[in-house]
């Protein structure tokens, strides 16, 4: 749920990174955090297990510049990808303005990708959202690994509706900002359309 503050002249939006366990959601936020100027970011919060798996969420507040004198602020969240954290995923999706689905390119993670994408659709629907109507991008991550599935196959299965899609190597930052910019742009365009 966006928050337009006419008093402080700010547009605040919430973007959620979704995807199966270990697909690289937290890595995306860490890369963004590391490459962003101190004045444009707040603290990154990671509620994680001792083994660095996301337990509840990661949170990174980010400013992406001004439009017509309004600061644009994006609150980036990741969900915990492990299947049994579903209750937490539902909570993080509340009030979402835009979604990035991070797929894991490795052949053996295909089933986990599909399950997570189904889960995203279901959890959004439960809260009255339709994935096809939300600002939404797909990132195919871990393109550097030798066991990654062919691009066409991944696209067919994980992006049948042909939303903006990006190949990524999140650990090296490849595709990370492209994905972020694309979803942020879709969010602002949707806000404009809805106003």
């Amino acid at each position: 749920m966006s928050f337009i503050n006419y008093s402080s002249r700010e547009i605040n939006c919430k973007i959620v990174y979704y995807g199966p366990g270990l697909c690289g959601k937290t890595t995306n936020l860490q890369y963004i955090y590391n490459k962003t100027n101190p004045e444009a970011k707040g603290k990154m919060i990671s509620l994680a297990t001792e083994t660095e798996r996301t337990l509840f969420f990661d949170f990174l507040p980010l400013s992406l510049g001004e439009i017509r004198g309004f600061k644009t602020r994006f609150h980036l969240y990741t969900v915990p990808g492990q299947v049994f954290y579903d209750a937490s995923r539902k909570l993080i999706l509340k009030g979402v303005d835009g979604v990035v689905f991070v797929g894991d390119s490795q052949v053996e993670r295909m089933e986990a990708n599909i399950e997570s994408l189904d889960n995203l659709r279901t959890n959004l629907a439960e809260q009255g959202y339709d994935l096809d109507k939300l600002p939404y991008c797909v990132q195919l991550n871990k393109r550097d690994l030798p066991n990654s599935a062919p691009l066409e196959e991944l696209t067919d299965v994980l992006n049948p509706t042909k939303v903006p899609q990006f190949e990524a190597v999140a650990t090296k930052g490849v595709g990370v900002f492209d994905t972020l910019k694309a979803v942020a742009k879709l969010v602002l365009t949707e806000l404009k359309r809805g106003s």
């Binding site: 749920m1 337009i4 503050n5 949707e190």
Partner: peptide, 14 residues
Amino acid sequence: MSNQLVMYEEELQQ
């Protein structure tokens, strides 16, 4: 979006 939250100067002061 119907559930958008908006804040105006007057209410913020209150």
